[in-house]
Design a protein around this nucleic acid. Structure first.
Lengths: 110, 110
DNA sequence: TTATTTCAGGACAATAGTTGTCCAAATCTA
DNA sequence: TAGATTTGGACAACTATTGTCCTGAAATAA
């Protein structure tokens, strides 16, 4: 579903489907149009405050948008690694472990 | 193998096994002992230049150390997400896709 | 115990990275 | 052509990271 598409490409398509100019969407996000242009082209990064606004604007799931955004960031971080799959695997185990650890301790440090 | 252990915890164990003080290892890394202390306790991050030095010092695989370091970073980034596994899955696909894309284009932008 | 060494942790400036903002040129559209 | 949209650069403001130093606590040795 969301695979292979960068966050920027995704929201650009959504915007063009609705025939909205950068200006309009940028206004809704309270950012400069040129910044939105850069986000769409991957030259700058979106942030999480934008997700509910974009989800609302384009009738998309906020969680899905967040998934695309975060996976983009991870993919970008690991692109240049020689063993990205292994890194992801170990990271997954660490997350499981840490979540469980935090649960057992009742700690909630985010 | 490397799972569940943070990079800092890992190198602390290695250092203590060899009964080396922070001072010595820090000198080998050309950093302040207090910085190394912080790295071991996860208060600061190690960087990749340190990997070959640590690998040499502790007779460990540099690739393995890098794996522990990078998986730490990814795990930390995704800890607070509600759907980390999904994010990792999509990220994996994106990496595959991007690598293939770059190969086909013959581009090598790292 | 006292002296010495190691380690933790804070402070702070220097550096690096990110973000907001504006502007001008290029591209597209009517 | 005229107007709107988009791109891309520049740059200051802000935020995060890093290097460095210092002090006190804790551990170790004498």
């Amino acid at each position: 579903m969301t695979t292979k598409e960068s966050f920027g490409e995704h929201i650009r398509v959504l915007r063009e489907n609705q025939k909205l100019p950068l200006r309009k969407v940028a206004a809704a996000l309270d950012i400069d149009p040129s910044t939105l242009s850069k986000i769409e082209r991957g030259e700058r990064s979106a942030n999480k405050e934008m997700l509910p606004l974009l989800a609302d604007l384009f009738n998309e799931s906020e969680v899905d948008l967040g998934l695309i955004l975060m996976s983009d960031k991870v993919a970008y971080d690991l692109m240049q690694e020689e063993n990205p799959d292994q890194i992801l695997k170990v990271a997954e185990e660490k997350i499981k472990y840490l979540k469980n650890k935090n649960l057992q301790q009742g700690s909630l440090d985010l």
